[in-house]
Amino acid sequence: MQNRIDKKFEELKTLKKKAFIAFITAGDPNLKVTEELVCSFEGVNVDIVELGVPFSDPLADGPTIQAASRRALAKGVTLKKILNTVKNIRVKTDIPICLMTYYNPVFHYGEKKFVEDVKKCGVDGLIIPDLPYQEAKVLIESARKHDVATIMFLTPTTTEKRMKEVVKAATGFIYYVSLTGVTGERKSLPSDIAGHIKSARKVSKKPICVGFGISNAEQVKAMSKIADGVIVGSAIVNEINKNVGKKDIVKKVSIFVSKLAR
């Protein structure tokens, strides 16, 4: 079976549409809501879900996702429980799912076993912000064997020479980081994003999606014009947090996402 991420980008290409990728922290406020949210996302034009595995020291994340990770960990959320949730989700929907996790939990789990297990549970891709390609040999080899995408980052500071190596190691899509900094909502985005994406396109035909800082429908629209997809995280995580404890949390968040993903 073709990887769900690749299949999704092929579909979008035929439809001449861009991908909307929604990030949520798994287990915030709890795994049941996470499961319901992911299942509801397909109905509100989310193309791919990025599921964040909470980590004690999320050094690429800003305050919003740091707080979400803390809340999830305090509830006792673990990687194993998250994989179980993905398994449950897979019974109900085929929406492509990427796992965003820091490297230590993966390394501790055992890289090969990790890739095997995530594949078995229905995960389609991996995003590991503190694992640059040159340290990722074991993981990449294993991911190729099991057809799990290894999504790699390009950033405003990536040199041309590195860019060539990074895109070689990337499958599924390339994650272009819009700015120098950590995740979190920003009022405005840097003006040079289009230029950076253009230079990335010179070295790769893989889909390029933009993330970090994107927090409203206007920014989503603007970024959709220059990239193959847009990733929104903190804005959605904030919306989830605003609705914690409410019975219609899934509906409220879905409406919020539908406005972004339109």
Binding site: P129, D130, Q134, F153, T155, R162
Partner: peptide, 14 residues
């Protein structure tokens, strides 16, 4: 050892 950092920092480390 090694270099386990976000991609943004790789250029400055080089």
């Amino acid at each position: 050892g090694g270099q386990y950092v976000p991609e943004t920092l790789m250029a400055v480390l080089d």
